[in-house]
Design a protein around this nucleic acid. Structure first.
Lengths: 244, 244
DNA sequence: CCAAGTTATTTGTCATACGAATTGTTGTTT
DNA sequence: AAACAACAATTCGTATGACAAATAACTTGG
């Protein structure tokens, strides 16, 4: 029980009790501690382990069920579902996945999705972006340029830009998708944080600027191309891998 | 007698109590009965309304919280979150959204996402699809061709094909995304089910066949183009709107 | 040996009580 | 009178114990 307490302290957001339990179990499922098809320990055991009441555990399990990780049946127990059922586009699930291990495969998969979604979002934004949206994008660029001090600050400004483009697409689904993906990327930086020099910093900012220029010029194809360049650069770059 | 009353409310899975409550509240939130920022009724009122215990309600609310629809704080109550927080790529949430009203906007948004994701998934599949995957895709085609009796059968075979392509991409995230989107499309058919004649049926099947041909020929660009053609045809087609 | 009924186990639901947190109120002080 | 601080009320969070429902495993009669 003491071990669990110390584990909880690593939780950044010390939220309510069942959220911590859900996160702990979620990460363990991702890690393969409980492979798909197997059963979780009985309620009593988990209760003992975390030192919580049954109410809390059941709410945690309900959260995991809602996110597609597990399914409970009477008598047979709660078993871990196949990975195909996991809601990977849930911010929490993706966060757990990243926390469990941000390997190259996941990194590539994320990049593929980005290359599929974001250029099209930029193209859509170019079609019907009003002055306010463009001003907002410019502000994001300014924030990126100003964020020379901390790598985390830059990542957050970058995230904000890409989220804004997703929102500017006018497509609810694209906005949601961009938001989840960018959040996962930012979380991954907290694990592995390579260094970045100032010259590259300015280069990356310029590349983002070209996206806004294309959107303002109402040139969908150019916007898409500029966005794709930013993502590809991020993927292949030795330094800023996955940065943009 | 009473089994046929609801379209797909209890049609799908007459699951446990809290799932029904969660679904009911979820659809109401989508419908704007409780706009973002406002508070849900007090626990006591909802308890009364559904005639359930507090445990069930709390598990239902926990489910909605896990899907990003609501957030609870002590003393202030549980309030509906802004639509930006909703996990639209959760199968349930998307299903509720479709059940609430499948308007043209949502239809277009879905098509945009499909045009972004699926061609790239097909291209990836063309890069590294083995014999088994191709055989599976051929089987899906055969199912589609055979499904001349019921419109629903055809939709399900179609769904299976697109899901298989998503899986064949080798990208976990794309597979998950395709699965959610296609499921939402199939659900939308249960609401509006236009008619389809045999000639068009065969045309659509042929178009799908071209995708598999391109994948088998390991031609990513052709695969992407063929997939895009299928989706665009579905969007613009007078008859099979959104069918694929 | 088989089949139908029984039992045991595990999740699902209910009911009640108390704790924690926050906000509105009220009383005190300046 | 105004500002501040202590308090109370309200609402969610957690704990606890009991019972219901469902089903896998067992038992028993044929």
């Amino acid at each position: 029980m003491e071990a669990e307490i110390s584990f909880h302290k690593f939780n950044r957001k010390a939220r309510s009790n069942h959220d911590q339990v859900a996160r702990a179990l979620g990460i363990e499922i991702m890690s393969g501690v409980y492979p798909p098809g197997t059963r979780l320990p009985h309620e009593a055991d988990v209760l003992d382990r975390f030192g919580i009441s049954r109410t809390v555990l059941r709410e945690a399990l309900k959260t995991l069920t809602a996110k597609g990780l597990i399914a409970s049946k009477s008598r047979v127990g709660t078993k871990v579902l196949d990975a195909t059922h996991w809601n990977l586009f849930d911010a929490d699930v993706l966060s757990w996945k990243v926390a469990q291990g941000f390997d190259e495969k996941l990194s590539n998969d994320l990049a593929e999705i980005r290359r599929a979604i974001e250029p099209r979002a930029a193209a859509l934004a170019a079609k019907h972006a009003d002055r306010d949206v463009i001003a907002q994008l410019r502000r994001c660029i300014a924030d990126m340029r100003a964020a020379t001090d901390s790598r985390r600050h830059f990542a957050e400004a970058d995230l904000e830009f890409h989220r804004a483009v997703g929102a500017a697409s006018g497509n609810m689904l694209m906005r949601a998708l961009s938001a989840v993906i960018e959040t996962a990327l930012v979380e991954s930086f907290t694990l592995s944080s390579p260094v970045r020099n100032l010259a590259q910093h300015e280069t990356v900012v310029r590349k983002h600027e070209r996206i806004v220029d294309a959107i303002e010029a109402r040139d969908p194809q150019a916007a898409a191309a500029a966005m794709d360049a930013v993502i590809v650069r991020g993927v292949r770059g030795v330094d800023g891998a996955l940065v943009t």
